[in-house]
């Protein structure tokens, strides 16, 4: 078991938030990221490491309607 992202188990391992965003193709998008119910500011994406059991929520902004 690894981390949970948006309610789903994510089995791959990611060192930090930045890498996780890259995996989802969201590194250049407008996003809000929360790790264990704490919002991570953009400047801290790289230094916020992820470990087993972490619960991550990511919302990205889109235009469309």
């Amino acid at each position: 078991m690894s981390i949970t992202v948006n309610g789903r188990k994510q089995l791959e391992l990611f060192q930090n938030v930045q890498q996780l965003l890259k995996h989802y193709g969201l590194e250049n998008r407008i996003v809000v990221v929360e790790v264990n119910q704490e919002i991570v500011m953009k400047e801290n994406y790289e230094m916020t490491s992820l470990s087993k059991g972490d619960v991550v929520e990511i919302v990205h902004f889109v235009g469309g309607g």
Binding site: N6, G7, R8, E34, I39, E57, V59
Partner: peptide, 20 residues
């Protein structure tokens, strides 16, 4: 609260953003 859903991927997120 910014709330997102992906119906196809069956994912959702809900983040309280007052800190921002």
């Amino acid at each position: 609260i910014v709330q997102s859903v992906d119906l196809w991927k069956e994912e959702q997120a809900k983040i309280h953003v007052s800190k921002l």
